[in-house]
Amino acid sequence: MKDFTKELNFKTSRSSGAGGQNVNKVETSVTVTWKVSDSEFLNERQKDLILEKLKNRINLEGFLFLSVSESRTQLQNKKIAIEKILDLVNKALIIPKFRAKTKPTRSSVEKRIQQKKQNSDKKENRRFKF
């Protein structure tokens, strides 16, 4: 798990939603930005992987954006934002295992066909005959 929190930039703004009078005067919403290509914690391959997998969240300048306004406090929103961005990046760095395609065995195909015939016969016997 890579921890690149030192490279994150935070910006606050007024949040919408619950908060009463507080919502109009306190900047509780937190927006996190991180320039993927300038990261010192990741190698080029990892950066390319992140740029590919998170391309819908990265703008043209190469910044990854994430806004959080779930909590009523700025500090809590900042913690949530850090957790979310770390989770996003770590999930993007996971390379799925290669799955080799396989065919069903001859015996399993025969077994399936035999089962279908048995089912068919069973239902045929249930039919009302004149």
Rank of each mutant, 00 (worst) to 15 (best):
R72K: 12
L49E: 08
N59S: 09
T28D: 09
G19I: 07
L60R: 14
E70F: 02
F10R: 13
K35Q: 12
V23E: 00
F10A: 11
V32F: 05
N22E: 03
R72W: 10
L64D: 04
E27S: 04
E52M: 14
E61G: 05
V32A: 00
A18I: 10
R14G: 01
F65T: 09
T33Y: 08
S15W: 06
K11S: 11
R45V: 05
K25E: 02
K55W: 03
T33S: 12
V26G: 01
S39I: 03
T12W: 03
K35V: 05
V32W: 02
F63R: 13
G19D: 07
Q46P: 06
T28L: 00
Q21F: 06
T28E: 03
S71R: 14
F65H: 15
N43V: 08
R45C: 02
I50G: 10
Q21I: 03
V30K: 09
S67A: 10
K11P: 00
L42C: 12
R14M: 01
K35T: 05
Q74H: 01
V32S: 00
V68C: 13
W34E: 04
L49R: 12
E27T: 00
L66T: 13
L54C: 12
S37E: 11
S39M: 13
V68I: 14
S37A: 11
L42S: 06
S29C: 14
L51Q: 12
F65E: 11
N59H: 08
F10I: 09
S71D: 15
T31M: 08
G62K: 09
L54R: 06
N22D: 04
E61H: 13
L54P: 09
I50S: 02
E70Y: 04
S13V: 01
E70A: 12
N56T: 15
S69P: 00
E61T: 14
L49H: 02
F41M: 11
L54S: 12
S37H: 09
G17E: 07
Q46L: 05
L64P: 04
S67Y: 10
T28Q: 09
N43P: 01
F41G: 01
A18F: 03
K55F: 10
F63H: 15
D38H: 08
V30A: 11
S15N: 07
N56L: 14
K11C: 07
E52V: 05
E27D: 07
E27G: 00
E40R: 10
S69C: 05
S37Q: 15
R45I: 06
F65M: 06
L51N: 12
E70G: 03
L49P: 03
S15K: 08
V26K: 09
